[in-house]
Simulated scan of single mutants.
Amino acid sequence: MSKEETQMTRNETMVLEFVLEGFHVAQHLGKLLFLVHLLVYLASVMGNTLIIIITWTDPRLQTPMYFFLRSFSFCECCFISTVIPKLLSIFLFGDRAIHFTPCIIQAFFFLFLGSTIFFHMAVMSLDRYLAICRPLHYPTIMNPRVCFLLVFFSYVLSFVLITGVILKLSWLPFCGSNVIPHFFCDLGSLIHLSCSDTKSLDRMAFGVALLVLFTSVITAVFAYSNILISIMRLPSAKERQKAFSTCSSHLIVLSLMYGSCVFIYVKPKQTSRLESNREAALVNTVVTPLLNPVIYTLRNKQVHLALRDALSRVNFQK
């Protein structure tokens, strides 16, 4: 082997460990940030778990809308659990190191579950459209088999799309800096660290992001524009208010998720704006999963009534 080949082999040695940069302020406020994020994480998991239990056990909530909400809450619990535990470890112990394989696995589950959540949002938008605009055909169209298949294909399509991106990412050589300027193994940050040509992966990631986000966006825009037209045609103001109240919670969640994700992922070059991506990612990984249970429980009269009845039964048994 020539001297040049030996040097090239040495330079392209696979990085076995990455270092998560996290947030600079965490060096001084680590324990405080640990406590805040721990409380938010526990509240998010408990809130989404409560939604799963209530919609599973209450006979009044055995409808397609709450079936999708239950699956959505399950995805949210898994999604935040891919990122927050490691972030808590960084805040408390300063443990920023993460090995190559766990890093790739974290990136996969973050993107896979995130994509699944967006496909769920598209399905939930379609469900609201059929319930309000096609009420006579709704029970026939949204039967249990169709509901199961919609959720199933949300997972399958996400798995297929993200597996291709992650496999291509895992084959990249990493031979320079191993510091990830993020608080988790972000796709754009990992692409930035590779010492090879990443143009094809950039294009692939951009295409997948467009497909996932804009499929969901287009479905939501189609659904809610038709819903708005149908609501405005209702003769009674009370009926209009009731119809819109069933969709308002979903619209709030949609705006939060789409805003941050479009900012992070829908750009042709995944390595641009890495610094600002951290703040935007916090909205998806910390803020939105916490707000979802609050929005869906406090703004939903049926869930609110089911919770009140469940608490009454618990108090009665005591």
Rank of each mutant, 00 (worst) to 15 (best):
W56V: 00
L29D: 11
R96A: 11
R70W: 11
F110N: 06
F67K: 14
V25H: 08
P64D: 05
F108K: 08
A43I: 05
F34K: 01
G114V: 10
A107N: 15
D95Q: 13
H37E: 11
V25F: 14
L39A: 13
R60Y: 10
N48I: 05
V40G: 02
F68W: 07
F100R: 15
L61Y: 01
H37Y: 13
C75G: 02
Q106G: 00
I84D: 04
L61V: 02
H28R: 11
M65L: 06
P59K: 14
S73V: 07
L32D: 07
S71C: 07
S89R: 10
R60W: 10
L113P: 01
G22Y: 14
F109N: 02
R70D: 06
V19P: 00
G22E: 14
E76V: 11
S71H: 14
V45T: 11
N48H: 04
V40R: 01
F108T: 00
F109M: 12
I54Q: 00
K86Q: 13
L50T: 15
I54T: 12
S73Q: 05
L88Q: 05
R96M: 08
C77K: 12
G47Y: 02
F79W: 09
P59E: 12
D58E: 15
S89V: 03
C103N: 10
Q106C: 02
P59N: 10
Q106R: 00
T63E: 06
I53T: 14
H28P: 01
C75A: 10
G47L: 09
V83C: 10
Q106I: 03
V83A: 13
L111A: 07
L33R: 03
V25R: 11
T82K: 03
I80Q: 09
G30A: 00
D58H: 15
G47I: 09
F108C: 00
A43D: 01
P59T: 06
I53Y: 15
S71W: 13
L42W: 13
I80D: 08
S71K: 09
R96I: 04
L50G: 15
F100C: 03
Q62E: 05
L39T: 09
Y66E: 02
C103I: 09
P85E: 08
L35G: 03
F68G: 00
T82A: 12
I98P: 03
